[in-house]
C-alpha cells in the first residue's frame, strides 16, 4: 500500500461562468504512471495544470504529496519544487545556456551549491543523451533536443512527480521517438508520471492507468488494455476510433 501522491476530490473549475472541470475525483499512487487522453478542449491540460497550481480550482480539494493546495504561496512554491512539469512548447529560457537552464532552479530554489547542481545537470543531460549541448543556447537546438533539455531541467529538481503536458505535440514526426524513449526510461525507473498525450503506443507500453476525459469530466479509466480494446463508454469508443484509425 503506497501513499497517495495526488488526491483530487470533488474538484470543479470555472473560467468565469464556463465550467472547464466537473466533479473530478482522482487518486494517484506514488510510482503510478497515468496517461490522460481525450479530445481537445476536454480539460485534460487544465487538470494537470491544477496539480501544480498553474491553474486554480474553485471547488473541491486537491492534495499533492500530503499538502493541500490553497492560497498559501509558500506552500505552493514548496510543492512546485517537488512536482516537475514538461510543456508542449518546451518553454526553455532562451537567454540561458542549456546548462544554466538546468542549474537555475536547483541553485535558487533548493540552494544547491553551483558545482553540485552542475554535476547533477550533466548527469541528467547525459541521461537524455545530449551532454555535448550543455554550453549551447536553446535556440541552437532542434525541437526534440529542446524537449529533452526540458525533461532534464525538470529532473534536476529531483521531483517526486512529473507532469507532461502534450510533450510531443509540437515536435516534427522524426523527433517524437527520441523524446518518447526518454519518457519510457523514466517510467521504467518508477517515476510518478501524469502524461497528457495522444501517443497511444506510449500509453500501452508504460501506463498503469489510462484516463479518458471529455467535456471536463473523467468519462472512463482503466488499464490500457481494457480501455483501448474494450471501451465501455460510447464517447471513449468514438474518440479511440478517431485516434487509432490512422
Amino acid at each position: 500500500m503506497s501513499e497517495a501522491a495526488v488526491r483530487i476530490a470533488g474538484m470543479n473549475k470555472f473560467y468565469g461562468r464556463f465550467q472547464v472541470l466537473r466533479d473530478i475525483n482522482l487518486d494517484v499512487r506514488s510510482g503510478e504512471r497515468i496517461v490522460i487522453c481525450g479530445p481537445s478542449g476536454s480539460g485534460k491540460s487544465t487538470l494537470i495544470r491544477c496539480i501544480n497550481r498553474l491553474e486554480e480550482h474553485q471547488q473541491g480539494r486537491i492534495d499533492v504529496l500530503g499538502t493541500e493546495l490553497n492560497d498559501d504561496i509558500g506552500n505552493i512554491d514548496h510543492i512546485r519544487r517537488d512536482v516537475g512539469m514538461v510543456f508542449q512548447h518546451f518553454n526553455l529560457f532562451p537567454h540561458l545556456t542549456v546548462l544554466e537552464n538546468c542549474t537555475l532552479a536547483p541553485t535558487l530554489a533548493r540552494k544547491v551549491p553551483v558545482e553540485e547542481a552542475e554535476a547533477t545537470a550533466m548527469t541528467y543531460l547525459t541521461r537524455v543523451r545530449i551532454p555535448e549541448q550543455a554550453a549551447k543556447f536553446p535556440g541552437q537546438l532542434s525541437g526534440g533536443q529542446q524537449q529533452r533539455v526540458a525533461i532534464a531541467r525538470a529532473l534536476c529538481m529531483k521531483p517526486k512527480i512529473l507532469l507532461f503536458d502534450e510533450p510531443t505535440s509540437a515536435l516534427d514526426p522524426e523527433m517524437i521517438k527520441e523524446v518518447l524513449d526518454v519518457m519510457v526510461e523514466l517510467a521504467q525507473d518508477g517515476m510518478t508520471m501524469l502524461c497528457v498525450t495522444h501517443e497511444m503506443g506510449f500509453a500501452r507500453q508504460v501506463a498503469d492507468r489510462v484516463i479518458f476525459m471529455d467535456k471536463g469530466e473523467i468519462v472512463e479509466q482503466g488499464r490500457p488494455a481494457e480501455l483501448f480494446d474494450n471501451p465501455k463508454n460510447e464517447r471513449t469508443r468514438t474518440f479511440l476510433s478517431q485516434v487509432l484509425s490512422h
Binding site: N52, L54, D77, H78, I79, R80, R81, D82, V83, G84, M85, F87, H89, N91, L92, F93, P94, H95, L104, A105, L108, A109, R153, A154, M157, L163
Partner: peptide, 27 residues
C-alpha cells in the same frame, strides 16, 4: 515575453523575485 516563460519558472518552484529577476526582466 511568451506566457510559457513565467509558467515554466513557476513550475520549477522559483519565487516571484527569482522569476522576475532571473527570467522576466533579463528578457
Amino acid at each position: 515575453i511568451p506566457v510559457g516563460q513565467e509558467e515554466a519558472a513557476k513550475a520549477l518552484g522559483l519565487s516571484y523575485w527569482h522569476r522576475t529577476g532571473r527570467i522576466i526582466l533579463p528578457q
